[in-house]
């Protein structure tokens, strides 16, 4: 099966700034693909390279096997949901949604019928006559989604589409987006800086750092087997054991990640002892910071388990396989 989107050693440099630097990636058709990273890591530039708003300074971009490096955005069969939604302020919702058909020369009745169908798909029946300015943030987001789907793209690009929504709405939209993607069966490429969003929605996650991909894998691979210290740190803020510490606990002498929830508090079989320096209540449990020789470790204690006091000396227990050895420090 041909990949929906393929990057072969793609670079995008702005003068001396290497926004995207030799990226290789391949997105299988029908996947929900997340591009995760801090701001300035190159994930948005990668998305813009796919849509055609940026042109690569090196490498090749293929969409369904066809070289698209020299194809302008209006001729690429991909569509984008913009971060600020980019709804046309002078058009009502129906005309916004129907825009893609209008510029193709589809007659008014057909495109309006089609727009109504798509508005129904995003649960906005009856909103066609309103102006974008009269809608809430969540509703605008749905209009943007409907508008991007009207041309039946094979790949839908989403640039931090949930960034402007409040927490509750964001969680509901996450479920809806995922359901929509499965229903349509098309490829979604999703840019986000929120690791929770990426892990919960995506089939595949690419973690970006400084214009390069630090790791590509399924959410569980990314979370449980971070390949680099950056990934371990950025995704779920893992503890990173130094090479020296790791070897002391029976792992190879390389840096290793150790998830806070893999550590228990107990004296029996304790690998390390230390003093509690901070407790942070998180609802589903409590995150405890323990000062140990040579650094500090985060420990996640789930609800119902006894909590140590601030300043108390505790022992830390974990299984040997919980330590995941990384490639570099």
């Amino acid at each position: 099966m041909t990949a929906a989107v393929e990057f072969l050693n793609v670079s995008r440099h702005f003068g001396s700034v290497r926004a995207v630097d030799g990226v290789d990636l391949s997105i299988a058709e029908g996947t929900f693909f997340a591009m995760l990273g801090p701001s300035g890591s190159g994930k948005t530039t990668c998305l813009r390279l796919m849509s055609g708003f940026e042109q690569p300074t090196g490498g090749m971009i293929r969409i369904f096997g066809q070289d698209c490096s020299a194809v302008p955005p209006n001729r690429r069969n991909v569509n984008t949901v913009f971060q600020d939604y980019a709804l046309f302020p002078h058009m009502n919702v129906r005309d916004n949604v129907a825009y893609g058909l209008m510029v193709k020369g589809v007659d008014k009745r057909t495109r309006h019928d089609r727009a109504e169908e798509l508005l129904a798909l995003v649960k906005l029946e009856g909103y066609g006559a309103r102006k974008p300015g009269e809608l809430s943030g969540g509703q605008r987001q749905r209009v943007a989604l409907a508008r991007a789907l009207i041309n039946e793209p094979r790949v839908l690009l989403l640039d931090e589409p949930l960034g402007a929504l409040d927490l509750k709405l964001r969680e509901a939209m996450q479920d809806e987006l995922k359901a929509l993607q499965q229903r349509l069966g098309i490829t979604f490429v999703f840019v986000t800086h929120d690791q929770g969003e990426a892990l919960s929605m995506a089939d595949q996650v690419a973690v970006f750092s400084q214009g390069k991909i630090a790791q590509i894998g399924t959410p569980s691979e990314i979370y449980e087997k971070p390949r680099t210290r950056f990934v371990a740190d950025f995704v779920g803020s893992s503890n990173v054991l130094t090479a020296e510490m790791a070897s002391r606990f029976g792992a190879p002498a390389r840096p290793a990640s150790l998830r806070p929830e893999s550590i228990r508090i107990g004296d029996e079989g304790a690998r390390l002892r230390g003093h509690v320096t901070a407790l942070r209540y998180l609802g589903s449990g409590t995150r405890i910071v323990v000062a140990v020789p040579g650094g500090e470790l985060s420990v996640f204690v789930t609800k119902g388990h006894p909590l140590p006091e601030q300043g108390a000396e505790v022992g830390l227990v974990w299984d040997a396989q919980a330590m995941h050895v990384m490639e570099e420090g």
């Binding site: 058709e29 369904f64 698209c68």
Partner: peptide, 21 residues
Amino acid sequence: MSLTAEPSRIAQPARAILPTR
């Protein structure tokens, strides 16, 4: 609903590049 009810469309060979008009 209409989108899911159109398997024929999904089954078309994917076209990455639209023709120039």
